[in-house]
Design a binder for these strands. Structure first.
Length: 297
DNA sequence: CGCCAGGTAGGTA
DNA sequence: TACCTACATGGC
């Protein structure tokens, strides 16, 4: 699962979108931009109020908009992006270097329950987010709902991130570095983070001291998990989400926390958690989507 | 007012 | 191991 996947079947072309640089990518296979950006794995993408069919957001210090024409899942357009940026940043961020057909097949083959989930959510991709951003975002996520998580992440960016402008002249803020969080004299007070502020402070200290690289270099997911869990406020759930969404550990799987409940509710009778395989975390995200969008609200 | 929201730490039996 | 509660905050 760690081997990059050469995409000679990907067709990338630079275009203009209302006089803004954009890139059209074809040959995605079966990639749902809307589900991927709206399934609760990232907190800085939203439907654009100005361009309703587009998602807009910030990652790796850059603002982009992303959309697919009439839900045509084989192609996507990234606005405010040049071809060099695509290959240097977004190709990996959108996880186009991964063998998603094989991953989905692997998950589907493991149980009828997972085959069902893959049918409903198999066009979701796991983004490769910035590790520190993923870690802090999922620390904030604990005991919070997704809209509020987004608001708190945004508040953190507004206080500590860099101020930048979109091509349309709107302000946006980058996700802060650990150093910026630690340097600020006002600390994290006033951001309404509640009891999570000291956890974020602890994560920033650990990141400043080099824990991100150490986690990235871990030999196994179990070893990586041990390192993330050493940060105060990071339990099994936050660790699994950080590893899955920030460190490309597709087998990280918070079976202890909500998965048992989700499985019991969605697929009564399923108790076999050992069959999830090397992409258990991906399967978990399929399940999360199923629960959130098809069974609940 | 009570309950819930992508939990965790610290305590107890 | 399994359960209990405090921890902050806001929406419904």
């Amino acid at each position: 699962m760690d081997i990059a996947y050469p995409r000679t079947d990907l067709f990338v072309r630079q275009i203009k979108h209302d006089s803004v640089s954009a890139v059209r990518i074809a040959g995605l296979g079966n990639y749902s931009v809307s589900k991927t950006l709206d399934c609760g794995q990232c907190f800085r993408f939203e439907r654009s109020p100005r361009y309703r069919h587009e998602y807009e957001g910030v990652a790796h210090g850059k603002y982009i908009r992303v959309y697919q024409e009439e839900d045509y899942l084989d192609e996507m357009i990234i606005v405010n992006c040049k071809e060099a940026d695509f290959w240097n940043i977004w190709y990996k961020y959108f996880a186009l270097d991964r063998p998603w057909t094989e991953i989905r097949e692997d998950i589907s083959s493991r149980s009828p329950v997972l085959a069902h989930a893959a049918e409903l959510a198999g066009d979701i991709r796991i983004l490769s987010q910035d590790p520190f951003e993923a870690l802090v975002s999922f620390i904030i996520s604990q005991c919070n709902n997704i809209p509020r998580i987004k608001g708190l992440v945004e508040a953190l960016c507004e206080r500590y991130g860099d101020k930048k402008y979109t091509p349309e002249g709107d302000v946006f803020y980058t996700f802060p570095t650990p150093e910026r969080i630690l340097d600020c004299p006002s600390g994290l007070s006033g951001l309404k983070l509640g009891y999570r502020d000291k956890y974020i402070y602890a994560a920033a200290c650990a990141a400043r001291d080099g824990i991100i690289d150490k986690i990235s270099e871990a030999q196994s997911t179990a070893e990586a998990e041990k390192m993330v869990r050493s940060i105060e406020g990071v339990g099994p759930k936050v660790a699994a989400c950080a590893l899955l969404f920030g460190f490309e550990r597709y087998d990280a799987f918070p079976v202890d926390v909500w998965m048992k409940r989700a499985l019991a509710r969605l697929f009564p009778g399923c108790r076999d958690y050992s069959v999830f395989g090397p992409y258990a975390g991906v399967a978990q995200q399929y399940m999360f989507y199923c629960e959130r969008y098809l069974e609940g609200k």
